[in-house]
Amino acid sequence: MLPTRRHIAALLILLATATFAQQPRTLILLDPAHGGPDAGAHLPNNLLEKDITLALATRLKATLTAAGFPVVTTRDTDPAAAIPPDQRAGAANHARPAACLLLHATAAGTPGIHLITSALPAATEPPRTIPWDTAQSAALPQSLLLANELGLSLQNAKLPVTLTRASLRPLDNLTCPAVVIEVAPLANPESTPTPVSDPAYQQRLAEAIAAALTTWRTHLAGAAQ
């Protein structure tokens, strides 16, 4: 008996379900820092950090979606009121993403990209209850691995990268593997530094992050199996 269309469709659905079940959860949360009255850092040429982070989040969301990642953001526009860190952390923890990327921009510090993980000590064993102020402790080993993966990808993209740790909110309140990506101007030995608003610079960064997350997803799939 030859298979009918219904049989083929059922087989395809079964295959798709099995493939989906093997894929780890790879929802990515993007948090463009600041917004509304909270303008963030005042950058050269009258640029505001809140606008740069939003532009970068928009670009990154498009690149990640094209790479097959579902993406949620804490803001898609410039809100009328500032979003408190606790509200951002609450939204992120509720979404239960596979990775949280907190986007910042600055004119100070080391040239290039700063990858920052929480300065909290890593939890030695899974806690029964998760204290709000130190929620990131349990996910810190995963956050450090994610930061390392992002660092390698940025190095491959010829972008200077610095890995550090810091205490800041909402990073310390997140339960997902989380990394702050702070963009600083690129040093050019023969000309003026490339500003953080440069579209080509942002695109290189977005593509490097997408490549890192693709590798991260593969690692997660390997760990799940």
Partner: peptide
């Protein structure tokens, strides 16, 4: 925060803060 970022609401443990960033590694 100090100037919009670093958390000033927490208590910092006093330790030797000598630090030099290490580059990402391929060991993982």
């Amino acid at each position: 925060t100090l100037a919009g970022h670093a958390d000033l609401t927490r208590t910092y443990p006093v330790t030797d803060t000598t630090f030099k960033p290490t580059p990402p590694t391929t060991d993982n």
